[in-house]
């Protein structure tokens, strides 16, 4: 596994500082704080937001929708992924579904979901649709990659089937599951916020972004964006941390 040295960290930090400097320079050049407010204004706005009354509920609303969409995707993905990974007929049967769901434009699914569901549930549904194919595909790949030779070894030694599943199959697909979870969470998070912008649930990051935009509070839109990025970064690190705890043999 790749480890970050102090040197890598310093370089990444310089990259981040450079980004802020370029932002500052461009905002000075445009000279209009309506088009692109300078970084310090976005930063102040972010601090204000963080201490405002509804901040926690808005963040909590989005995070909960993300977790719900994620858990349903994971449960569905596990069942369908395991069945499809073990059985070719099931695999051929679900492939069109996975391809269709994966290639459908997110925006058209949001438009349909707006017609079908309550505003609160639309982002959950979108998160589900975006994450489910990624997780399922990863689990299918994981099962296909299970080493037949190890399974034969276990069968020769008359190891009982439940233990073969638990101690041979599952550990073999864990890295695929965590990999799927990490990429699904990143993409799902963005889709959920986008659908909140359109569905306007009572509390949500997307809702607040849309409000800020309609009052032309560009610095606040940027502040929410940075908050979304920070949260996504935290989630990704949590997933990687859990992965390292489970996959100790790598």
């Amino acid at each position: 596994m790749r480890t970050f040295t102090t040197r890598d960290k310093i370089i990444s930090l310089s990259g981040a500082i450079l980004l802020v400097l370029v932002w500052k320079a461009v905002s000075l050049l445009t000279g209009s704080r309506l088009l692109l407010p300078p970084p310090e204004e976005a930063f102040v706005s972010m601090i204000k937001l963080a201490f405002s009354a509804d901040f926690a509920v808005a963040v909590f609303g989005t995070v909960i929708r993300g977790i719900m969409g994620f858990l349903i995707s994971l449960a569905l993905g596990m069942v369908i992924g395991v069945l499809a990974g073990l059985n070719r007929t099931v695999n051929s049967l679900v492939t069109p579904l996975l391809v269709a769901v994966r290639s459908a434009p997110v925006i058209s699914v949001i438009l349909l979901a707006l017609v079908w569901f309550r505003t609160d549930f639309v982002p959950v549904f979108i998160g589900l649709l975006v994450m489910f194919p990624i997780i399922t595909t990863n689990i299918i790949e994981g099962i296909k990659s299970v080493d037949r030779e190890l399974v034969d070894m276990a069968r020769s030694y008359r190891v009982k089937l439940p233990r073969i599943i638990l101690e041979v199959y599952i550990p073999a697909i864990v890295p695929f599951i965590t990999g799927g979870i990490a990429s699904a969470a990143g993409i799902g998070w963005k889709a959920i916020i986008a659908s909140e912008v359109l569905s306007q649930p009572r509390y949500g990051i997307g809702t607040r972004m849309q409000n800020a935009q309609s009052y032309l509070l560009v610095e606040e839109v940027i502040a929410w964006t940075i908050i979304a990025v920070i949260l996504s970064y935290i989630f990704e690190n949590m997933i990687r941390f859990i992965e390292r705890k489970i996959v100790v043999w790598r």
Partner: peptide
């Protein structure tokens, strides 16, 4: 060798002895 990569040396031996 056909060892389970996620089990230690003793874990691999115990794997076949458990039942």
């Amino acid at each position: 060798p056909r060892l389970l990569p996620w089990k230690t040396v003793i874990g691999n031996i115990e794997f076949v002895l458990k039942d």
